[in-house]
Design a binder for these strands. Structure first.
Lengths: 342, 342
DNA sequence: TTGAAAGCGCTACCAG
DNA sequence: CTGGTAGCGCTTTCAA
């Protein structure tokens, strides 16, 4: 068995209460006592037992982030931003891939219900109906924050959320394309029911309308935002009559897959078709042609989501009537996949 | 406060011991009792308190995976493999990015020492000296397994590890290049002190020697295995005299960065220079030209590492004299970045 | 098959 | 500023 506060107390000739106080509230202990206890703690290599502390305190000081696809490098900087903010507050970040465990809903909820984590940061807006319902319970809802994605519909309004300014992102892209003479512009969506697919499409339609244009076509084929889905969309795109001269894609991975697919079909980007992605993942700059894309401020998104959760979870804090929705600004990064309309 | 076994016990007219038994050892309880308890459990929506259970059982049923860079999509399939194996055994997987928290060593160790996790799967072979020493303590060492990377030197022998057959991977690549007429072949390493850089370089040198050739040059510039390091290496490569006609890269990301850099310098892949990567991350197939690479069986690596840890951690199991080293086979995936020597 | 009871390690209350 | 002590929720002997 490893060393406990009892051992420290005995060696210091103080009570366990004093040892505990020294560790948790150093200011409530005399300087001498503190110094002595700290010395012995260091000497014996004592570590608090987190189970005991959690049981007693009725909180775990850790939160769980639910990511829909850890294989998408898009999420890494978001998680880094979260971790940094949480770490500063002494809170631990756990990470799970909701598509991986097989059961996103139960995994999330059980962690919360079993007290393994104090809160949830959910980056997955596509939750099964049963999970959505369970999340809506008041004592659960106040421990949950959404990030990047969110729940559409009435339930969505129950949770604070942090997201990029998706509609503005779409507008930046469309304005640029229209400015280059493109009139026939398509939108490549991910899963049709996904909020990001929908929101960015709405922004696209609105931006086109401002120029007196209509959205040429929307492809919403894929089951995810991945490369393969983009690759397959190339076939669809070249089959369109008249063929669009530009495409806004809902993710960088889809954009890269699309470009690879177009390439294989003998269509050149940007000569024949211009392509814009969304996210600005690291690879985008090294893809050739380098991908023009809407950059999301990923670190900021993660940080804000973590902060929101910490406020929300804090005991005594009355939940605001209307949960906050934070929109994080985006920015268009011009690279080499956009050119003038042919 | 949420519902506890006391509530269940009261409603069922049994003792808390019986409720606990029903939940943890259903077979040690009469069928009637079990049915009744289960019903009430479901009705009240009871969930075990994990802190209490961990405190009492003196184990957490969870393990921590330490990943050197979550932004590298290479790791996702490994984590998926781990999670699957662990989940089947009722064990929870926690994930941390060792480069992110600022302090890889302390983070890892504290989780273990505080009893938050029962074991560690470390994918990072570049640990600070203090951490290496701390890991070597017998009661710590038996709770640690390495995966992908490992500790070089004497400490390394203390830990079981699972890795790809790196030397064979290098040989497959070199044999292919030599077969295509390449005689002047360079190796692009990651951080020079990294075991993967070293091991794959050794395999490269040995394979070349088998053909009566010597390694032309090694570049070991980068601080990581990332795209930027590869991009920068392009400059180095084109400056060599005579210029190599082929390069084996220690990672796919570096290979892609390198190709982008060569592209920007007006050097064509594979016409002027052939490039082979290592890993086969998802993007490799969609990069253009599609990346020829040594595929690692990532799911298998993760699974085996998890299994090894579970055996190792199991109480009562005497640690074997010589910890296991598992070599997982690799495979060369031919795509479009390799051609005949100019 | 079941119940009583001890106790995992820690924190926080209440007295002094 | 410090000590005594109850108790967080659960599991596990030991006895019945």
């Amino acid at each position: 068995m490893s060393v406990s506060i009892k051992d420290i107390a005995r060696l210091c000739g103080v009570s366990t209460a004093t040892v505990s106080r020294t560790l948790s509230h150093p200011d409530r202990v005399s300087e001498d006592t503190r110094a002595q206890v700290m010395t012995v703690v260091a000497t014996l290599g004592y570590n608090v037992n987190s189970a005991a502390r959690s049981l007693r305190r009725q909180r775990s000081d850790s939160v769980l982030a639910i990511v829909p696809d850890l294989g998408n490098p898009f999420f890494s900087a978001i998680l880094a931003g979260m971790e940094e903010a949480l770490h500063a507050a002494g809170i631990d970040l756990l990470i799970r891939d909701s598509r991986q465990a097989g059961n996103s809903g139960e995994v999330m909820l059980n962690h919360l219900r079993q007290g393994r984590v104090d809160g949830l940061i959910c980056l997955d807006g596509a939750l099964p109906e049963a999970t959505r319902r369970a999340l809506a319970a008041p004592d659960v809802a106040r421990r949950v924050v959404f990030c990047c994605e969110w729940l559409s519909g009435d339930d969505g309004a129950l949770f604070p959320s942090v997201r990029s300014d998706n509609q503005t992102g779409a507008r930046l892209a469309i304005d640029t394309l229209v400015g280059l003479g493109h009139r026939n512009i398509a939108f490549l969506a991910g899963p049709p029911s996904n909020v990001l697919s929908q929101e960015r499409r709405i922004g696209t339609v609105a931006a086109l309308a401002a120029h007196g244009l209509e959205l040429s076509q929307t492809c919403g084929g894929g089951q995810d935002f991945g490369l393969q889905a983009g690759y397959e969309a190339a076939q669809w795109l070249v089959g369109l009559e008249p063929r669009p001269t530009a495409v806004l894609c809902v993710s960088d991975q889809m954009a890269m897959g699309l470009i690879a697919g177009l390439n294989d079909l003998g269509v050149s980007v940007p000569r024949d078709i211009s392509v814009i992605g969304f996210d600005d993942i690291v690879t985008a700059a090294y893809f050739r042609p380098a991908l023009t894309t809407v950059r999301q401020n990923r670190g900021e998104i993660g940080k804000r989501a973590a902060e929101l959760l910490m406020i929300q979870v804090r005991e005594g804090a009355e939940p605001p009537e209307v949960p906050a929705v934070v929109n994080v600004p985006v920015e268009l990064i011009m690279r080499s996949t956009v050119g003038p309309a042919p």
